[in-house]
């Protein structure tokens, strides 16, 4: 786990080090006058020191909890991430359970009802969702449901709610930064409803784009398991077909689906970049896009590390789940 994170940090650092010291120094320049002082900046921050010295300097600061100063957010990087993270988590908190439960369910019924109308419909829908570019699909949704029907607006929360929250810090306490959860905790259901309204389109976009692969994996895994010999044993035992599908086949078929699900969680958090960008949600993805286009190195490095951490943790959870379901890989 530590090794993986170390690898991620070295890799990201190397990529960003491939910019010349001057290019990196420009990020700190705010006026024309400062442009002339770039060589001084380079010397001051040690930007032309050898690679390993700069890496060690950076990583020691990280261990001290100092992720550097973000020029994009005009605040320390850590503060910026803490401010933007809840929006991303909120989005994934809604989309991931839908993706996993709906994906596994659709894959299961498609597998059971192979080559029937249900199977063909799910498969076509999955392929269409998978092949649609995220930005295109999101824009179409916005066009229909926002411009045409004024139903589901972009951004995270309506302006009047936002004003209300910032004006009444004592009436509305921001526990998590996620409006839906905070709204529930404060029993302010107007906030909850408004936040949910803003969540519908991003969640739909994310589910449509990400779910396809899970449906396909679950379906093929079901088909593979249905043709196994233990299914015949169960049939010969007199077990009814529903129990065979739900108890015998599905549990075995879940294993590949779980692997994919963990991977999808990571993919979906990364994929939030496009969704957040288009729906103008102030989340991690939006921050990353801004930081990357303006060469805000501390933010890019910190977010990459965070994504690496999420990957590692997700894989750990998958391994644990695997052991719960499959006795063959359980350690004694």
């Amino acid at each position: 786990m530590v090794v993986v994170l170390f690898g991620v940090s070295v890799l990201m650092f190397s990529i960003l080090m491939s910019f010349s010291p001057e290019r990196r120094a420009v990020a700190y320049a705010t006026s024309a006058k400062q442009i002339k002082e770039i060589p001084i900046l380079v010397a001051k921050y040690g930007l032309d020191d050898p690679y390993h010295i700069q890496y060690i300097r950076w990583i020691t600061q990280i261990f001290k909890g100092n992720f550097g100063y973000s020029t994009v957010a005009s605040s320390p990087t850590l503060d910026a991430i803490i401010k933007y993270l809840p929006t991303t988590i909120e989005l994934n908190l809604f989309s991931m359970p839908i993706i996993i439960t709906l994906g596994i369910w659709l894959g299961t019924i498609a597998g059971i009802h192979r080559d029937t109308f249900i199977d063909h419909t799910t498969r076509i829908a999955a392929i269409v969702g998978w092949s649609l570019p995220t930005f295109l699909f999101a824009l179409i949704l916005l066009m229909i449901f926002y411009s045409q029907f004024q139903l589901f607006p972009p951004e995270v929360i309506s302006d009047h709610i936002d004003d209300f929250i910032s004006d009444n810090p004592d009436k509305f306490i921001q526990y998590t930064g996620m409006y839906v959860i905070d709204g529930l905790l404060n029993r302010n259901f107007e906030v909850v409803a408004d936040a949910l309204k803003h969540l519908v389109l991003p969640v739909v976009t994310q589910v449509t784009v990400v779910i396809a692969i899970l449906v396909r994996v679950m379906r093929s895994s079901m088909l593979e398991e249905i043709s196994k010999d233990y299914v015949i044993t169960a049939k010969a035992k007199g077990v009814d077909i529903n129990t065979i599908h739900q108890k015998h086949v599905k549990k075995n078929a879940l294993l590949p689906a779980i692997t994919i699900s963990g991977w999808l969680v990571c993919l979906s958090i990364e994929g939030s970049v496009t969704v957040e960008f288009i729906f103008n949600r102030a989340g991690l993805g939006l921050l990353l896009v801004k930081a990357a286009t303006q060469l805000d190195i501390p933010v890019v490095l910190a977010i990459s590390l965070l994504l690496g951490l999420i990957y590692v943790v997700a894989n750990l959870i998958i391994d644990v789940l695997y052991a719960v379901i499959d006795p063959r890989i359980r350690l004694n």
Binding site: D229, T233, A236
Partner: peptide, 25 residues
């Protein structure tokens, strides 16, 4: 037939490795 299978007529299979469900006791 469901009531009959495994009750009046039972079957033993060729490949014991494959005939048992790997994730059930």
């Amino acid at each position: 037939m469901q009531d009959l299978r495994g009750n009046k007529i039972s079957m033993i299979f060729q490949e014991p490795n494959a005939a048992l469900n790997p994730i059930m006791t």
